[in-house]
Design a protein around this nucleic acid. Structure first.
Lengths: 254, 254
DNA sequence: CACAGACCGTGACGTCGCGTCAGGGTCAAG
DNA sequence: CTTGACCCTGACGCGACGTCACGGTCTGTG
């Protein structure tokens, strides 16, 4: 048989044959005068045995051992089965997450738990795009520093304060309109309203085990997402909440 | 933040950060005087968004699209879910095969269906090792040329003729003892007994759709596994069964 | 008997998501 | 001033092949 015939018979590609030769898994056959490889059924059998095992997930490197050692083959099966089981579990939870993520459409980086709480970022995303992006990032940060479980707890009780909520959206909208021409009075009022609205959330954070000082990360992020005047609002907001107003000096203010 | 701090916070390795920089997935941060990278929370958020998506199976290459395109993200979720489902199915059937293979222990390259038929090659493997190997190869060949389904059908009705069967084992044992000193009479007798025993199997093969002339492959394999005198038995055996006694000229007789 | 087209050969690089040196510079504490 | 912990870049490694690139071989047809 020529290589292509053998490959067709065995259901592999010619390149695969060559690879098996290279790693010493398949004996080199005789050659024709022109240098063509000339295979026989023995090679076919060998390849079939190989492909049967690789189909089970056996790496090519360990094949030489298991092809002729029944005991090695035994323990290998255990291992392969456990690997497959573990992989199936990972993929199953992955599918569950994907299913949940369908609910906040187009934002698959949001924590899935928000979906079941009915939090819908799309509303505020349309109203105030750039700040919705910021909220989105805050949620991602928060979910990470708290862990998905603690985040779920917090989110469950605080969902109404969050972005999907009309009151929160309105605050965000007001903040988005802040610029140089905004009066000091409005700055003060908005900071107060923000503080009133978010105080429960931050208080709740205090109850939880601080991972790497989550509040710091969040406020640091906050400081980076606004114009000067908006930052002034945030400073007052933070003061009103008695949060640490400075962050690690390695974190640039930009 | 230094790279190791960021890496620890984000739950990735420093090497991963460097990789994301290399493929343009993560913006290069400012540098210190000494050339050290100095990250901020923005980078942390970016990495968290990335890892959330890669955990869903999103390849790094497509992340730039989906991170900022809700529509792309939508259709991506469908695709990922289907991939995961397909992979789960493959792994599940793989586990089923592994479970079946447990029964003919140490021989994971045998077709799994043989397990439920109670075929046990170990018996004959102890009795006549080298010929058991040959039978094993024949089974692998047969399973391949017929396909697992047709092979299952054939195997179900012919299990008693096969290797686990005492009568078959006895024939194989007789064949294994054949050498130069064996009488012509015994050669003839054994060939006849083999033909009688295996005729139903080969006849059955004729009923099935010939894939690449399975009988040829099988006889070719048969011709390679024996000493001269044993081949003589086989020639008679094949004649008695009216099988094609020659094989493709590309198949060497050695 | 020449020629086209299909097939064969041997390198060698690409894939994917990083791990792991190797060889050198930087930084903070003692 | 040194030590040890950290940082940098560059480059190869992994696993199982896919995919050129470039050249020789075989086979059928004119």
């Amino acid at each position: 048989m020529r290589s292509s015939e053998l490959a067709a018979l065995a259901g592999v590609t010619v390149r695969t044959l060559r690879h098996y030769h290279q790693i010493g898994l398949l004996e080199e056959p005789r050659r024709t005068a022109g240098g063509y490889r000339s295979y026989d059924v023995g090679h076919l059998v060998r390849i079939l045995r190989i492909t049967r095992l690789t189909a089970l997930g056996v790496p090519l490197a360990v094949l030489p051992e298991v092809l002729d050692d029944p005991e090695a083959a035994e323990s290998l099966l255990d291992e392969l089965d456990q690997q497959a089981a573990a992989e199936i579990e990972r993929l199953t939870t992955r599918r569950a997450v994907i299913a949940a993520l369908r609910h906040h459409r187009g934002m698959p980086d949001l924590p899935p738990v928000l979906a079941e709480l009915g939090v819908d970022l799309r509303a505020s995303a349309e109203a105030v795009p750039e700040l919705a992006r910021y909220e989105r990032e805050q949620l991602v940060l928060l979910a990470h520093v708290l862990g998905e479980t603690d985040f779920a707890t917090v989110a469950r009780s605080l969902a109404p304060l969050m972005v999907g909520d009309p009151a929160a959206t309105e605050l965000v909208r007001r903040l988005s309109r802040v610029d140089q021409d905004t009066s000091e009075a409005e700055v003060e009022r908005l900071a107060g309203d923000l503080a009133d609205h978010y105080r429960p959330l931050l208080a709740r954070l205090g109850d939880l085990p601080a991972v790497t000082d989550p509040a710091q990360l969040l406020t640091a992020h906050l400081q980076q997402s606004y114009n000067e005047r908006q930052q002034q609002v945030n400073e007052r907001f933070v003061e009103l909440l008695h949060l640490p107003d400075a962050v690690d000096e390695d974190l640039p203010t930009d």
